[in-house]
Design a protein around this nucleic acid. Structure first.
Lengths: 194, 194
DNA sequence: GCTCACATGTAATAAGTTACATGATTTC
DNA sequence: GAAATCATGTAACTTATTACATGTGAGC
């Protein structure tokens, strides 16, 4: 689902400004499984307005630009339901942290320690945010999505704490120019054996 | 990390063709946290060759295009280590499935059931692949990354099995044109109250 | 006979990121 | 005095996706 669908989804749950949509995607109920930047949201909202799928009213403010509060139109709700009728794209997870852990034999042990601690802190912060969102959340779907995130991150913390020592201990073992090739990956062994 | 870094990473573990790199990213040790398509890999490999970070040799084959087996050059290894020295980009997870679950009150119960079953099947398949990769895997970093994925998906299956009934039962409750606005999300309540 | 695995690559297009531009108010 | 929050938006740029093009051999 692209930013368009994401705006539709968030607006389905209630009126919001572009700013608030981004916040939902960053800290709210959607934060576990959605991404969106201003540079994507504002243009998307403009386009949705053109298409008649959302409308907006202005709320005057002083000192900041006036708020533009967007609402899903009936056509917008219909479009959203239609979007929802397709097959979901496969889940995607990307982690540079894990890539670095895979290559930690090339990193200084101290750096590996710092990376791990930063990751643990990040995971704890996200759990905090999700717990906060969970408290006031009554819909079954939202509760399911949030507990997915909370449980997943909680487990990631446990696992990382347990692995920390091993990861740090073997770090740096392949540094230096003379360090030959690494042990090949299992699935590449065939290739390497030739 | 973009496709360039990913090619460097995979080639660090051993020589490979573009085809094999994609496979690693799709089913191998990297599959849990990396994505890459041919349309991204082949051009990246060409560019890396120009920059002198990788080199290749040809292996003649009949019936298929000759294999181009890429190797990381010393300059490439150095560049990779340098890439690794930056701060890792934050992890990213995207899931249309979870978005659909959040909106399952708009979906027919039968469809929710089908979506859940497909998701469970997908999770099981991925676990199978990762277990296979794990068996022959000795590096600490790789084992950590793989167990991350295996544990995470295993938990996701448990959680989804437990939630299945609740999700299906409440599905469809907001279908129809007359279904008023949904219960607003917690963080939007303030907005809605005005 | 059909589909999958193998194997390379290009080109058009879609999509989103980053940085910029502006500026008051609040908190540390 | 600095940084974060609120609040909008644009433009240049990067990046990757999708579909196409080509072709054999193996297994069902």
């Amino acid at each position: 689902m692209n930013v368009r669908g994401l705006c539709l989804a968030i607006l389905y749950f209630g009126d919001a400004t572009g700013y608030e949509i981004r916040k939902q995607a960053q800290e709210g109920v959607f934060s576990y499984f959605i991404e969106a930047s201003y540079g994507a949201i504002y243009p998307a909202l403009g386009k949705l307005t053109e298409e008649g799928l959302v409308s907006w009213r202005e709320e005057v403010q002083s000192g900041k630009p006036n708020k533009k509060i967007y609402t899903l139109t009936p056509a917008g709700k219909a479009a959203f339901i239609k979007d929802l009728s397709g097959e979901p794209a496969p889940d995607k997870f990307k982690s540079e942290f894990l890539l670095m852990m895979m290559c930690s034999e090339l990193l200084e042990p101290q750096r590996v320690e710092r990376l791990i601690d930063a990751q643990l802190a990040m995971l704890e912060e996200k759990i905090g945010e999700m717990n906060a969102a969970y408290k006031e959340c009554t819909r079954e779907g939202s509760r399911y999505a949030l507990t997915c995130g909370i449980q997943s991150y909680t487990q990631a913390i446990d696992h990382l704490r347990q692995s920390r020592k091993n990861l740090v201990d073997q770090a740096g073992s392949a540094r230096g120019d003379d360090a030959g090739p690494p042990q090949p990956l299992a699935s590449m062994a065939k290739e390497a054996r030739r």
